[in-house]
Amino acid sequence: MVSHSSSTPPTPEPESRLRVPQRNPKPVAIQVYRPASEMRQPLKLMRRMGADLLASRELAWQLMKRDISAQYRESFLGVAWAIIPPIIASAGFAFAASADVINVGVTDIPYPAYVLLSTALWQTFSESVMLPMQKVGSARMMLAKIQFPREALILAAMGQVLFNFAFKLLLVTGMFLWFRLAVPPTIVLAPVALLHMVLFGTVLGMFLAPLSALYQDFQKGMQLLLGTWLFLTPVVFPPPSSDGLFGLLVRFNPVTPLLVTTRELMAVGTISDPQGFWLVSGLTFVGLLVAWLVYRLAMPYAIERFSS
C-alpha cells in the first residue's frame, strides 16, 4: 500500500473492507488464438462449442430478462403487444371470410379460432427467424468489445420467442373456451412440434445473423420474404387439396408440415402429414449444427468488418 501514500490521503474504499467471500478459484484457462481455421481441429472445436453452450445458459437468461423487461418497459400497452397482432389479423380475416370477400375452404375448427391459432404460430415462426438477426445486430457494440459465448444471443432470442408465444397462448385458450372447443390429448406433444418449428426459424436466423450485422439488406430482405411466405403457408386458409402450382408450392414449403402438425396436435388430435413433419425436423437438426458452426466461425470476421 506504499503507492497511495505519495499522492493522496487514503480514503476508505470497498477493497479495504473485503466483503467478497472466497469461492473455490476456477482453474486458470489457457487460450491460444491462432490464424488457422478451427475446422482443422474438429474435436477441439466440438468440445469448445459444447463448453460455450453450457457457459452461455446463464448469460442467455440474463440477456433474455434484460430484453424482455426493456421491450415492454417504455410502452403503455406493455406485454399486450405480444397478442395484439394476432387479434387484429384474425379479426380482419374472420370478417373478410364472413362477408365472403375471401373464400377459404372448410377448416377443422371454427374459422376465427383457426386463424387466431395459426397466426400465433406463424408469428412465432417469423419471430424465431428475425430475433437472432436483431439480437446480433443490436449487440454489435458488445460483440466488438467483449469476448462472451456468442451462443448466448441465440439462446436469448429463442427464449424470448417462447416467452412471447406463452402470452399468445393465453389468447388462444380464451378463444377455445369461447367456442367451447375440446382440447385433444395430443396437446401434450404439441410443444415438441412447436420447438421444431422455432428451431427451423432459428436455423435461418442464425445463418444470416453474422452477415445481417454487417449489412441491413439481409434483415430487410428477410422481412419482405416473410410477408410473401405467409401466403404460401396454410395460415389463413386450410391446406389446399389440389395439385395446382399453388398447392405444390404450399406442400413443398418446409414450414407447412411444422406449422400444420403443431396446430393439429393442439386442436384436432390427428396428424395429416407425419412423414413431412419428420423430414423437415431431420433437416432442421442437421441445419442447426451447420448454422451453429457457420455462426461461430463467421463471427470474428464479421466483427473485424464492423468494428474497424
Binding site: Q31, V32, Y33, A144, K145, Q147, Y301
Partner: peptide
C-alpha cells in the same frame, strides 16, 4: 481486439492465461 479474442490474427499466435 486480437488479445481479447474478438478477431483472429492473420499470422502469429496470442496465448492468454
Amino acid at each position: 481486439r486480437i488479445i481479447a479474442g474478438l478477431i483472429k490474427p492473420d499470422v502469429g499466435t496470442v496465448t492468454v492465461k
